[in-house]
Amino acid sequence: MAVARCQGGSVRPPSRRATAAQAPIAVRAGRPCGAHPLRRVERAQAGLATLAVTALVTAGVVCGLVVVAQVRGGGASNALGHTEIVQVQAGESLEDVAVRIAPDRPVAETVHRIVDLNGLAAGAVAAGRLLVVPGPAR
Score class of each variant (00 low, 15 high):
residue 126 A to M: 05
residue 24 P to V: 10
residue 16 R to Y: 13
residue 42 E to M: 10
residue 14 P to M: 02
residue 45 Q to G: 00
residue 102 A to L: 06
residue 67 V to T: 02
residue 52 A to C: 04
residue 126 A to P: 11
residue 109 E to N: 14
residue 16 R to G: 12
residue 20 A to R: 12
residue 77 S to D: 14
residue 71 V to P: 01
residue 119 G to T: 05
residue 1 M to H: 07
residue 47 G to Y: 02
residue 117 L to Q: 01
residue 35 A to D: 11
residue 95 E to S: 15
residue 40 R to I: 06
residue 75 G to C: 02
residue 97 V to M: 05
residue 36 H to Y: 02
residue 118 N to I: 05
residue 80 L to S: 04
residue 124 A to Q: 13
residue 91 G to R: 11
residue 1 M to Y: 13
residue 77 S to N: 07
residue 136 P to C: 00
residue 12 R to W: 13
residue 129 R to S: 09
residue 108 A to I: 01
residue 130 L to H: 09
residue 122 A to C: 12
residue 64 G to I: 00
residue 103 P to Q: 15
residue 46 A to L: 11
residue 127 A to S: 15
residue 6 C to T: 15
residue 15 S to I: 03
residue 15 S to L: 04
residue 108 A to G: 04
residue 136 P to I: 00
residue 65 L to T: 00
residue 52 A to R: 05
residue 125 V to Q: 03
residue 117 L to H: 06
residue 9 G to Y: 01
residue 4 A to E: 12
residue 137 A to P: 11
residue 115 V to S: 03
residue 137 A to V: 05
residue 112 H to I: 04
residue 28 R to Y: 09
residue 98 A to P: 00
residue 42 E to T: 03
residue 135 G to A: 13
residue 121 A to Q: 04
residue 48 L to C: 10
residue 99 V to N: 05
residue 121 A to T: 03
residue 96 D to Q: 13
residue 12 R to N: 12
residue 59 A to G: 05
residue 65 L to C: 03
residue 27 V to Y: 07
residue 32 P to K: 08
residue 9 G to R: 07
residue 4 A to L: 10
residue 25 I to Q: 02
residue 6 C to M: 12
residue 134 P to G: 10
residue 130 L to N: 11
residue 11 V to T: 10
residue 16 R to H: 10
residue 120 L to G: 07
residue 48 L to K: 08
residue 91 G to N: 08
residue 86 V to S: 01
residue 111 V to L: 06
residue 110 T to A: 09
residue 20 A to Q: 09
residue 66 V to Q: 02
residue 52 A to S: 06
residue 41 V to K: 06
residue 17 R to N: 13
residue 99 V to Y: 04
